[in-house]
Design a protein around this nucleic acid. Structure first.
Lengths: 233, 233
DNA sequence: TGCGTCATTATGTCTAGACATAATATGAGG
DNA sequence: CCTCATATTATGTCTAGACATAATGACGCA
């Protein structure tokens, strides 16, 4: 007879429950793995795996010899998804269109060439976001061949270029007169500005600045204390 | 002789490297676990563990029977830290102050009581953020005893109340005349609005709306493709 | 008392093998 | 040619045992 279909999961959820219910407060020592193994009737490796997942979730801390402890107040962080605009707009049921305004290849003396692209993302034929993007041609030579007049650079890059780290800065700004005109809104309108720098290793790949009309766009971030879960878990 | 001090890690880093270098492009099939085990001279469980970590990192997808594949464009998501304002301002080297404007206990017929708190966060005696918070007293009875005229509710809640999930919505809005006055800025100024709903299980704990002057506050989010690593790994 | 050493302990990692499970590929029958 | 049942296959999970490693705490010596 199998003890249970999913011991590791059962252990994880049990401990999660005790932490969330407040039964085990931050700093509380969790029984040693041997004991948990005995209690749940499984191997120590299974307990260890469950605890490992709880560590990854930020709920538990482990120290050799000392033991496992309930982690101190979960860091208040959230996973923000920065979607590909084409997909996001399609998901809303509106037709997406990209319109390039200017594509400039900049030859920097001594430095690497860059490609700078200005354009507008449309949703249902209304301007949705302004974008200015800089691509480092040294890191992304293939970009010189891509036709950004037709395909949005974000979509193209996502499909072609691997990156390893990114930094986002979100800020509220007032639209300048030019920006307001391009976004079909009033001068000084509140806009959400999203800046993103992307690197591969320690070398910059691309920089984007996207400007959204504040009344047309929200950024949503979710956080599950416990697990950065992937679907149906 | 031991094969190597850290096979799992070696495997993970090797595969990571191949993906980031572009040698294995998105969609590429990764050799089956048996073969990797043979190649690296270790047990299949070890390979499986390494692949599991790469899945958690979003670099790899695994499908039963089909095999393991290099994941398609890493989901463009980022970890956004939503700091406690008192800490954030202290970290800037400015003095923090909370000023409550109105504390209202709302008795809702048939529903649970709520506590609504309006106030302002100050940094260096300048208004930094407006806040309106609603606390569900059914979930947080202790809140009735707390003195929110003195202590900021966010700080108090973080220290006292466990939560399990949160949802954030970030938006750019124009300040109303009242809001602008409270923030010492002009009417219609672009502000970053952060709304946060927090739950314990499926029951709401608190709702906050914070309004920041756009020229005084950024939200920064970082993302490391590869691993939501914790220290020195 | 104070300090360095060493045994102990709990986690960290790995192995070899087993069985479960889901999805694909194959083949039989219509 | 299409459809459904079946065999195959690669991942998913678990076990029992082994050894590594780091940190603690106890012991003994100065």
């Amino acid at each position: 007879m199998r003890a249970a279909p999913n011991p590791a999961r059962r252990i994880r959820e049990d401990i999660e429950g005790r932490i969330h219910s407040g039964e085990w407060k931050p700093g509380t020592r969790i029984p040693i793995e041997q004991e948990l193994a005995a209690r749940y009737g499984c191997a120590r490796a299974t307990v260890s795996k469950a605890l490992g997942e709880l560590v990854a979730a930020g709920l538990v801390e482990r120290r050799r010899k000392a033991g496992s402890f309930v982690a101190h107040p979960p860091v208040h962080s959230a996973v923000m998804t920065v979607p590909d605009l084409a997909e996001l707009i399609a998901a809303r049921g509106e037709t997406y269109r990209w319109e390039a305004r200017a594509i400039v290849r900049r030859k920097n003396a001594g430095e690497a060439d860059t490609l700078q692209i200005d354009g507008i993302h449309f949703a249902a034929d209304e301007p949705f976001a302004l974008e200015r993007r800089t691509i480092e041609l040294a890191e992304v030579p293939a970009a010189a061949e891509a036709n950004f007049a037709v395909e949005a650079p974000g979509t193209w890059l996502l499909a072609h270029i691997p990156w390893t780290s990114a930094r986002h800065v979100v800020r509220a700004v007032a639209a300048t007169r030019t920006e307001a005109k391009a976004l079909a809104t009033g001068s000084g309108a509140a806009c959400l500005q999203l800046e993103r720098d992307t690197w591969r290793g320690d070398r910059p790949v691309t920089h984007v600045r996207q400007l959204f009309r504040g009344d047309r766009f929200d950024l949503v971030a979710e956080f599950q204390a416990g697990m950065p879960r992937r679907e149906g878990d």
